[in-house]
Amino acid sequence: MWESDALFELAAEPADTETFAALAQRPLGELVAPDWAGALAGVEDQLRSVLSFLAAEVAAGHPVLPPPSCVLRAFRQPMAAVKVLLVGQDPYPTPGHAVGLSFAVDVSTRPLPRSLINIYRELEADLGIPPRTHGDLSAWAGQGVLLLNRVMSVRAGAAGSHRGKGWEDITTAAITALADRRGPDGAGLPLVAVLWGKDAESVRPLLPGVPAVASAHPSPLSASRGFFGSRPFSRVNELLREQGSSGVTWELPPVP
């Protein structure tokens, strides 16, 4: 039986009537959790520039994913509570899929993305947890798993279309801030990085001294080349316990 083990609840989502243009004008402290606002203050101008770019995309008739209410969702999770950093590439480009958390989709999305199906397959092989029929990973986020895409938006139907538009500076600042919490002797707050694929591996230099679980990406094109059999979930929990932290309850609720 699944039991909730969340340390906190994610903040409520802003109204769906929000626009990227409006987001670009709001104070940073209204867009992200207070401690993230401090960590991202140095790239606030870049963030506003990216949000303005997204507004321009929409104005030009190019749908953007995820919607404004979700684009900064990962940063509404308090930074102080993060103990696992799971790095994704960019959001799913299929309309209705992207929800602002890497690899996750809305609870009603069917069929599930194939990468997520492969994640569930490995979760079952690793910990014996049966795959869920939904793709809502917010229960992981609620335990301090930061589901962070390296690039946090995409033009609908065009994977990778928002690379090089400024998100990399913002997520670099975020990842660096997480690593800095550990201090030079690694005795600070616990942190484990999960790096699936070459894009995720590229952030390793930003995480000096942070233990990492790395493998091939779970996409159908690469999962059989090192993702399957990598046992990431049990390895993350082992590394957390070595740092004096509790592990993550990876079992998701049958119906969120």
Rank of each mutant, 00 (worst) to 15 (best):
L195N: 08
S215G: 03
V210M: 02
G160C: 11
G229I: 07
E168F: 12
V192H: 01
F227L: 14
I175V: 11
A200S: 12
K198F: 10
V151E: 07
L206C: 09
S222Y: 14
P208M: 04
L147T: 04
M152P: 01
A179K: 04
N149L: 06
S202A: 13
F227A: 13
G157E: 08
R181N: 06
S224E: 15
R150P: 12
L207P: 09
A179Q: 06
A177T: 06
G209L: 10
A174H: 06
V210F: 04
T172S: 13
G183I: 00
R155N: 14
R163G: 09
A159V: 13
R182T: 01
K165C: 14
E168A: 06
A179F: 03
G229H: 07
L206R: 13
G183A: 11
G229W: 04
V194T: 01
A216N: 08
S222A: 15
V151L: 07
R204E: 11
L178P: 00
H217L: 09
V154G: 03
G144F: 05
G197T: 04
S215M: 15
P190H: 02
S224L: 14
S219H: 09
P184C: 10
K198D: 15
A223P: 02
W196F: 15
D169F: 15
A174L: 06
L191Q: 01
S161G: 03
G186N: 05
H217N: 14
V145W: 00
L147I: 06
G164R: 00
W167P: 02
Q143F: 00
D169G: 08
A177F: 00
V210E: 03
S219F: 01
W167E: 14
H162T: 09
M152G: 06
W167R: 10
L148E: 07
V151H: 12
D169Q: 15
T172I: 08
F228Y: 09
D199P: 14
G209H: 05
A177H: 00
A216C: 10
G166M: 01
P208H: 09
V194C: 06
I170N: 02
E168S: 12
L221H: 15
R150H: 10
H162G: 13
L191D: 01
G166H: 00
W167T: 10
P205K: 07
G183Q: 04
G188L: 11
R182D: 04
